[in-house]
Write a protein that binds this DNA or RNA. Sequence first.
DNA 1: CCAAAAGTGTTCACGGTACACCCATGC
DNA 2: GCATGGGTGTACCGTGAACACTTTTGG
Lengths: 229, 229
Amino acid sequence: MPHTYKYPRPALTVDCVVFGLDEIDLKVLLIQRQIEPFIHRWALPGGFVRMDESTDDAALRELEEETGITKVYLEQLYTFSDIDRDPRGRVVTVAYYALAKLSDHRIRAATDAENVAWFDVDDLPQLAFDHHKILDMAMNRLRAKVRYAPIGFELLPAKFTLSQLQRLYEIVLTAKLDKRNFRKKILSMGLLIETEEREAGVTHRAARLYRFDRRKYRKLAKQGFSFAI
Amino acid sequence: MPHTYKYPRPALTVDCVVFGLDEIDLKVLLIQRQIEPFIHRWALPGGFVRMDESTDDAALRELEEETGITKVYLEQLYTFSDIDRDPRGRVVTVAYYALAKLSDHRIRAATDAENVAWFDVDDLPQLAFDHHKILDMAMNRLRAKVRYAPIGFELLPAKFTLSQLQRLYEIVLTAKLDKRNFRKKILSMGLLIETEEREAGVTHRAARLYRFDRRKYRKLAKQGFSFAI
DNA sequence: CCAAAAGTGTTCACGGTACACCCATGC
DNA sequence: GCATGGGTGTACCGTGAACACTTTTGG
């Protein structure tokens, strides 16, 4: 079923940088390609945009198809359009980044990806296409945005300890934070709901669990409040 | 000269939100369409991306062709891909925003635009396509970014007075700023070079002219300094 | 000499930062 | 009882905010 146009058109794809957090470092989800070009190379999940879907929808669809991941925080990152970024010809890609709760997601390989895995962002394999450049920009965006928007919570389970939250910031910002000051600051925003629960299965004093108060954040944000770490 | 592909492809365009500043308000450059769809409606300058150019290049080319503007600060804004955003069919657009020095630019109408004009951002005509949405996002981006990056200078002549600079921030942020505090803050960054010149042609005491020290800013930025108003 | 904008210092409140010890729990 | 992280308070400093008058120049 060929499609013919008066003027040539670039192909349009989406690519997703999916971040996840474990106890010690920041991870990215990659798939191993089983088709040319770059066969067997690791790459960002992504694929062609269909005519009946927005690029947002395409990103969500590809994520689910290739990795099984659904319900993540997803945000458009940047559009990459260098004319030689794909050896197959002219392909423009709209890149997204996503924040996933690692615990939630049993990832799976699927369709045209022969393998899916989480990689430490500081220990990445060679990547296909210009995916290193995309990943780089995603890292910078995450690092910048985590400081002025409450997106870090998207990487944690719904209930978390203050130490987990602090560790998150330390990992993403690659900086050590003072425990007392961190707690003072984050609690003083009034955006954390103290639950009656404690963490389980630890060999020392169990920490209190908190939840992020989205509703309250939205209300405050409307009034000009701005989140900052 | 038809072009045939195995799968259908969206058309790809660029659109530019060009900001300019006069003494009293923030302006946007619009063109009046002389072709369908939305014939005679005002719209953002833009057009189709060619196969041998990146979207950045396309944006610069369209700006020059349609408005005569060259050498502006240009930055990618966002990619808009709603499936019904263009009545002609599936068209995805990569939007840019640009900051122009009003004084520099004798704008001109050209090729497929019958008219080009600057509009006060608070007094816009109806726009074609989803251009209101694009403009809205551009305004928000400008307002946010002007506070943490020295992009305001792109809207001023190379030499400017501190009052001009302050007026710029007051206009973009729609907020009144304290003169003494503003001067203290901006001068304390050490990024302004004091020239020996004064503004000319005023009916009162002439203000000193300053230049922005790009070189020094880049150096400081590398060392982690961050600009903030 | 008058109008118009340029230019200039000080005080105060608050938030950021630095810093060290006791507490609860599981083994 | 000991190891492990949980949890807490205070002092200091620097930055942001509020605020008003004198100076210069052209007409």
